[in-house]
Design a protein around this nucleic acid. Structure first.
Length: 803
DNA sequence: AGCACGCCGACT
DNA sequence: GTCGGCGTGCTC
């Protein structure tokens, strides 16, 4: 086996295949599938993944693997297979799939630098030589910044300058400096006696080691003896002490003590739900369970006990949680139960921290991973269970390539490992519930809350009537009265507003002009924080115009309501209330999410005001009121799931109230109280909602009755975009069976982003075995135009959002 | 994706 | 004649 098949890190259609490399003799039996290597590719060096080994190839001449990056494969056999499955399933490049399964730290960085060719210094153009005066290497990137790039290029052509291609790891292993004595305590004491009288600090350090033998972290030592680095250095120089850097894990949860908890006693309902899961774990059978339990019904305890059973069996568990509810509170529950056996993975960690958590899994130092979507790729080898909490959450679908859904990956992996999958939710995705009803999934139901607490009382307030009654504020009489009441009682309130920023848009009252983003077809949002207008899509930022750019009038006004504005309003009407605002703006800094929640939990605030991110996972006993300021914001989005999303959000947020001893109340403000998703979420009646929504889906031919695939096309030129989409729609339509429907072309809901026009067409189908092949041919056909970046085509099978 | 190679128009 | 623009094709 002296030839390796390698997938190179060049995400392009033409390079999306294996390339063969010969393995240098010294590395035969060292190189294994799943390892990262550096290989020459054309004139440069690139990173690649070894996918297989073989003895023969059709090629006459092979180039050699230049370097091996891993001691152990980073992808095991199962994950390599999963990579192929992902590639096929999401129609991405193989390299993209492989990289998606690994932490970002393992992705290569490339650098191209120039150096004067040895012995040719005199031949180099003097202007170029001048640039090299104070350095040996010049980065090609820097050369391009300057206006004499051509000069350098010529020198390269002449062979006077050498081009070196670097492949660097993003990988940084964190090290900490340790100090340890090289002598025994007796020898140290003896030596201390010989020290000069002036070397007081050195004497103290030696005393320290006599009392505390063994290695110690340098920083701790310096603090303990109040010495400086120089003292240690001096002793090290005399070979009394040794300094050494040791690799450590960054522990995002260091300095935190988790009290060990034991399994709670389950209610009868919980036990009944856990039993079939345990059976499946015991028998290694690949079952998919849908754990359908109302908010507060104790799903987490079932997860914990299922994981416990898996650990006892010597196997491993993956626990997926939506990104926004991966709160310290959630993590705590798992750390408390399983202690050091838990790794945590979420976007709040730095690249290095994520890498360290990943390594704990890779080195089999942990048994459980709790994480967001990408944790589904945790490199465990004996999976015993995969759990997806809040399985309906759209964040389980990755919105960039590879566009995978963690639920599908979970089922695929569990199939390979012969282990069960548990999908949990109080408001399952329609697709999942339908599958449970068809007995593809096993339905487990929890209909009662724990602690015997009742589901909260929900009141729906018609804001149109409030307006008619002369109340123009954003709080209805009812909600305001209840807010005041809680304030008096010292109980807490959660207020949900599904919009960030201050106002949703800025308009001129004289001519009606709405200030739009110059690059995107979307209105700019006012941000009070720096008093500016911001585009949420391309990041464009500008000052608020003093006068209307269209008509010159100064009647510029803010419309719509954002969390910032509500906060200001609260200060006005309830000045005594202490408010914590949580949205993307206040939680962008690392750990701020946690800090705000802690403050709320500890009772330093009366009202928690926030966007969607507060709807999940909060479990605070003192919350007795939940207010939804405007339930309809999501309802009118151009998306066939908008009713489902609205129902889920309202039901979830309602579930935050009255989870413990105190009873909870919910006030939902809306302009469309008659809408079934609002009405039924008020009754917390998922089953009725399911029936109602399924009926609509059947009539309108949407999932779960039909599959959908979305093709997005973008181009700088509007006509070209429309024309190409038209052609694509025709082509797809012709290639599919008559039962399939192709809708469009239509302009995307946001018809322009970053100066590119966007069109889409939607395919609805039941069974089209040739669909993927057809789409692949389509991509191939436009390959040239997409390679030149004029045209972008993205295909999303089972899209979660229609933008 | 890069990068080389090659073909064409514009300039010393 | 040569420089540099971009279209074309290749990378084990």
């Amino acid at each position: 086996m002296n030839i390796a098949s390698v997938i190179v890190d060049v995400p392009a259609k033409q390079t999306d295949r294996e390339f063969d490399y010969s393995i240098p003799d010294k590395w035969i039996n060292v190189v294994k599938p799943g390892m990262r290597v550096i290989v020459p590719f054309g004139p440069r060096m690139v990173q690649g993944f070894v996918t297989g080994l073989k003895n023969e190839t059709e090629l006459k001449k092979l180039r050699e693997i230049k370097e091996i990056l891993d001691l152990e494969p980073v992808l095991n056999e199962e994950l390599l297979r999963l990579g192929n499955w992902l590639t096929d399933e999401t129609m991405c490049f193989r390299i993209t799939a492989l990289q998606a399964m690994l932490p970002a730290a393992l992705k290569a960085k490339y650098e191209k630098v120039l150096r004067i060719h040895e012995g040719r210094k005199e031949l180099v153009d003097e202007r170029v030589r001048a640039a090299f005066r104070d350095r040996k290497f010049i980065s090609w990137k820097d050369v391009l910044q300057e206006d004499n790039a051509a000069l350098f290029q010529k020198q390269v052509q002449k062979g006077n300058l050498e081009v070196i291609y670097y492949v660097k790891d993003k990988l940084n292993k964190k090290t900490v400096r340790f100090v340890e004595p090289l002598l025994t305590s007796e020898e140290l004491a003896q030596y201390a006696g010989t020290l000069a009288a002036s070397a007081k600090k050195q004497y103290e350090v030696l005393q320290f080691f006599i009392e505390n033998p063994g290695k110690i972290q340098l920083r701790t030592l310096l603090e303990a003896v109040k010495a400086s680095n120089g003292t240690i250095k001096a002793l090290a120089k005399k070979n009394i002490l040794a300094e050494r850097d040791e690799e450590i894990y960054r522990d995002p949860y260091e300095n935190r003590v988790f009290d060990k908890t034991s399994p709670f006693k389950l209610t009868e309902e919980q036990s009944a739900a856990l039993r079939p899961i345990q059976k499946s774990i015991k028998e290694n059978s690949h079952d998919v369970f849908l754990l359908y339990g109302v908010t507060g019904s104790g799903k987490t305890e079932i997860y914990l006990q299922a994981i416990d059973a898996v650990i006892k069996k010597g196997e491993e568990a993956i626990m997926l949680v939506p990104e926004i509810s991966l709160t310290p509170q959630t993590v705590k529950r798992f750390k408390e139960r399983f202690g050091e056996q838990v790794a945590v993975m979420h976007s709040g960690l730095s690249i290095g921290e994520k890498y360290d958590e990943w390594r704990k899994i890779h080195r089999k130092e942990v048994k459980v991973v709790v994480g967001a979507r990408s944790a589904i790729f945790a490199p465990f080898e004996n999976l015993g269970v995969i759990i997806i909490d809040e399985e309906h959450e759209s964040s389980y679908k990755q919105e960039e390539t590879p566009r995978y859904h963690a639920r599908d990956v979970a089922i695929q992996r569990a199939n390979q490992h012969n282990c069960p999958v548990i999908l949990g939710s109080a408001t399952p995705a329609l697709e999942s519930f339908a599958r449970a009803k068809k007995e593809i999934y096993q339905l487990l139901t929890l209909s009662k809350r724990m602690n015997n607490s009742q589901l909260p009382q929900v009141e729906i307030v018609d804001m149109r009537e409030e307006l008619r009654a002369g109340n123009r504020s954003m709080f209805s009489e009812n909600l305001f009265a209840k807010l005041k009441d809680r304030l008096q009682k010292g109980e807490q309130t959660v207020l949900l507003l599904n919009k960030r920023g201050h106002s949703s848009f800025v308009m001129c009252r004289s001519c009606g002009l709405v200030i739009n983003c110059p690059n995107c077809d979307i209105s700019l949002t006012y941000h009070r924080f720096n008093d500016s207008l911001k585009c949420h899509y391309c990041g464009h930022e500008e000052d608020i115009p003093k006068t209307c750019p269209e008509c010159g009038s100064d009647h510029i006004r803010f419309f719509g309501t954002g969390t910032q504005k509500v906060e200001e309003e609260l200060v006005k009407i309830l000045p005594e209330a202490r408010v914590i605002r949580m949205d993307v703006d206040t939680t962008s800094r690392k750990g701020s999410h946690e800090r705000l929640l802690n403050r709320f939990q500890e009772g330093h605030a009366d009202i928690l005001l926030g966007t969607q991110m507060i709807a999940k996972g909060l479990d605070f006993p003192n919350i007795t009121l939940v207010g939804v300021l405007s339930a309809d914001t999501m309802l009118h989005l151009p998306d066939f799931r908008s009713s489902e999303k609205t129902f889920q959000l309202l039901t979830q947020v309602s579930g935050r109230a009255g989870r413990h001893k105190l009873a909870g109340e919910v006030v939902i403000q809306t302009y469309t109280p008659e809408h079934y998703s609002i009405e039924l979420s008020g009754m917390q009646d998922f089953d009725a909602f399911y029936e109602r929504e399924m009926h609509i889906r059947r009539q309108s031919l949407y999932p779960p009755y039909y599959y959908v695939a979305l093709i997005n096309i973008s181009h700088e030129d509007l006509m070209k975009t429309a024309a190409t989409t038209e052609k694509i729609a025709k082509y797809v339509s012709a290639g599919l069976s008559p039962e399939a429907m192709v809708l469009g072309p239509v302009a995307s809901p946001i018809s322009r982003i970053k100066n590119r026009y966007r069109y889409q067409c939607l395919i609805k189908y039941k069974r089209e075995p040739q669909l993927k092949q057809l789409l692949r041919t389509l991509l191939e056909h436009y390959q040239q135009e997409t390679a030149q970046n004029h045209l972008q085509i993205s295909i999303d099978l089972n899209p979660q959002i229609m933008m």
